[in-house]
Nucleic acid binder design. Structure first.
Lengths: 350, 350
DNA sequence: AGTCAAAATGTCAGCGCTGTCAATCAGCCT
DNA sequence: AGGCTGATTGACAGCGCTGACATTTTGACT
């Protein structure tokens, strides 16, 4: 009982290609999979046939026969610009490796994270996963990953796992440097807005701030350190509280641009002249950074590049050998300081 | 030659489930695929076995045998908030339908759009595609789609295809209403900032503006209609040019929030008091809408919902019957006007 | 109880590819 | 020429599931 092949739909099978090239299907398979042991001339013939017939190997069949899926999963908790930039980079790299990316939301706060992740991994037979923060640090997620025995790359994890590669940026150093810029301009009372708890970025950015302050023998006024959770609205309240302190801070360092924009907004509502009476620094170089006036001094993350590197790491995993290359790869991508109009020398009278 | 099943990895096969339930594999298959003609009691037994064994059907095998892929493609040109919200909605709906979403970038400007799309469709054997603007209006894309014979849903297409469903929102009416709000507040000279050419939104939003103006017997000053391409930077220049006109417009309607934020910014730089001297309206209810002061009056799009509906339409396609239900579904989702502080009565002296 | 259509279930081949292993070939040595 | 080794290539089964069709069961009605 031979089912009729849908005409037009799909392309030739490997047998047709084999016929055209005058070899066996297995040899075509060898060529497709880039295996060694095919004479150059044969390979050429096969390649030509593939081109002529515009042959596309059937993923499902390859997967079934070879016990693979050619799929890697990208899991996120929060949609947004970061995600879409990241995935664009990751997809680019995947295409080069003939893999495909499944992008899936996963609620970090849900009690079912683990189960959901596990279902997806097993249903799709994922060959690897990439975890965006804060997913990489959830114990439930780690448990599943450990059991699943597939390569996982963590993006900016709070606590790097011994056996899992990670990609991150040196947020701490960047904030340290930018804080130093403020100090150098004479600022001494500097407010700091924290991000969302559970993110590496939140911790590292604060540490960078603390580094710079302590390096200059300055103490940090606890009143001037507030959690804005990466949100504009909360940043607004933080800023108001900070700006209500006496003496007023002359600068505010926000852990992301949304909150920095909030600081600008709050200051404006209090009729402060920016940047003369208040300097503001953000992080991310988000679109809003150039939409507020004065434009935000901030830090640019190479998000697309991070995505690309993450996908690249996945393909470095050796399934049937020892797993990850040793030492387990950790990639630290450079950040770029972006100095714009939102910082100025501290006012004299403060 | 029986290859050893990887222990632990993957789950039981359909045969194991069949054994446990005391039925044939085919019956298990029927249950999995929700086919009719299985006695309730039998179905129950099978379901129990599936649960006990934590069985996950093998997608590749199902695909190969049934000539399906369970995959639908979402193609985009521009990453960003819109995309990531949209895909989150689409994935949600897909999960309910036991489908999976492949999100793939596709350069609208590239000469290879058609070929790239075709490759992806055939390589992944996509069962359907969703096209984000402006991809749906590219002739190259349409040609491929026509040839591919798979369901395609167009999001906010400029020219709805007769045979392809679409999802959009009534931007025209929303802009008309919001323009009416301005007119009602006494504004007569109103600037309008156009979006990027090739987008339905660009056209519709302008038409809504024109509707309202004409309905009130007002002419549109061509000097006050400028293309900002949805970009903040370009919006800034548009705004400056408009605000340099005599007499100055008392309100600016921007086709998106980024440009509206630019208008706010430009006005501020010219020391205009907002909203007293200039009212500003945007579109999208983007994050920036609540980050500028005064907060933007704008229009909220139910982006996640649009994604969900798009995925839902795909699954309404009847592959082996007549294709799309007739008439071809067109879903128009409601927009929500968001009135915020950025509009005020027109100044008296203008 | 016997008949018969409809409902429920089973049998079996094969989807398009790859793993295993066997067969063939080319090149080199004696 | 014959023998041997390693490089290429091929034969074939089977991955886990579903389509087509065969068979069995059910139950409604004589």
């Amino acid at each position: 009982m031979r089912r009729a092949a849908a005409p037009g739909r799909g392309s030739a099978t490997i047998e047709v290609v084999a016929g055209q090239a005058g070899v066996s299907p297995k040899t075509v398979s060898r060529v497709i999979n880039n295996e060694r042991g095919v004479r150059a001339e044969t390979r050429e013939r096969v390649l030509t046939a593939i081109q002529q017939l515009d042959y596309q190997p059937n993923l499902a069949a390859r997967g079934l026969a070879g016990d693979r899926s050619f799929l890697i999963g990208l899991f996120y908790d929060q949609p947004g610009d970061y995600l879409s930039e990241f995935q664009t980079g990751a997809v680019q790299r995947c295409r080069e490796a003939n893999l495909h990316l499944m992008v899936e939301p996963l609620e970090a706060a849900s009690p079912h994270v683990g189960r959901d992740l596990s279902t997806l991994i097993r249903q799709l037979r994922l060959e690897g996963v990439i975890l965006l923060p804060p997913l990489s640090d959830l114990p439930a997620v780690q448990a599943i990953l450990a059991a699943a025995d597939i390569p996982a790359v963590h993006i900016a994890p709070m606590h790097a796992q011994d056996d899992a590669p990670s990609v991150d940026t040196d947020d701490r150093a960047a904030v340290r440097q930018l804080t130093a810029e403020l100090l150098q301009r004479g600022h001494r009372r500097i407010g700091f807005m924290l991000g969302r708890a559970g993110h590496r970025a939140t911790e590292q950015r604060y540490l960078g701030f603390a580094d710079a302050m302590h390096a200059n023998g300055l103490d940090i006024d606890p009143q001037l350190v507030q959690a804005g959770n990466f949100e504009f609205a909360e940043g607004l309240e933080c800023a108001r509280r900070m700006l209500g302190c006496h003496p007023r801070p002359t600068a505010i360092f926000a852990s992301n641009d949304d909150m920095a924009a909030a600081a600008v907004s709050a200051a404006r509502q209090m009729s402060l002249a920016l940047p003369r009476q208040l300097s503001v620094v953000g992080f991310d170089d988000a679109p809003v950074a150039t939409m507020v006036w004065p434009q935000l001094t901030t830090v640019r993350q190479p998000v697309r590049e991070i995505g690309r590197v993450a996908a690249e790491l996945i393909s470095q995993y050796q399934p049937h050998r020892q797993g990850w290359p040793r030492p387990v790869p950790r990639r630290h991508l450079p950040l770029e300081l972006v100095l714009r109009g939102s910082i100025a020398p501290a006012p004299r009278n403060s």
